[in-house]
Design a protein around this nucleic acid. Structure first.
Length: 147
DNA sequence: GCCAACGTTGGC
DNA sequence: GCCAACGTTGGC
């Protein structure tokens, strides 16, 4: 799960302990949250845009896909007039903090790992803010450092 | 700050 | 239903 740390960082998640992953307004990313993510699924928290870019921690799913109610909140920055309580379009999950990396696992390092070659987030032009990680990729990333 | 890649919109 | 125009994302 990708986030710009100026918006929401791993430190924020650590402080909050649990957060709802609201504001995703992309259908593919929504589908992963709505249809695929299950309770206790592991999640890597990725900081984008701000240096150093990369994986900064681990979280887990504690609540499965449910309507993102910020979509029909006119005051919310992710307000979307197309959605409503009667017609919920967007979904979110809740994730809980698990642990932070002592040091960021940088994007440039991830790109050097052959086992991660096909990972969605490393695909050229990938812009999905929520993307799948295979079990093998997950285990590989866990070996990259002390957690 | 640039720009490639991608998703969305809307005219036809 | 096509596709040009536009807006956004995000690495560099």
């Amino acid at each position: 799960m990708k986030s710009e740390p100026t918006e929401y960082s791993i430190a924020d998640l650590k402080a909050d302990r649990v957060t709802c992953w609201d504001g995703v307004r992309n259908y593919q990313a929504r589908n992963f949250m709505r249809d695929a993510m299950q309770i206790n699924d592991g999640v890597f928290f990725y900081h984008s845009v701000v240096e150093p870019i990369g994986i900064v921690g681990e979280a887990k799913v504690v609540k499965c896909g449910y309507p993102d109610y910020t979509g029909w909140d006119r005051k919310d920055k992710h307000y979307d007039p197309k959605t409503s309580p009667a017609n919920p379009i967007w979904s979110m999950v809740d994730v809980a903090f698990v642990r932070a990396c002592g040091e960021v696992i940088t994007l440039s390092r991830l790109r050097t790992i052959p086992a991660l070659e096909k990972m969605e987030i490393l695909r050229r032009g990938s812009r999905l803010s929520v993307s799948p990680v295979t079990e093998e990729e997950y285990k590989t990333i866990l070996t990259l450092r002390e957690w």
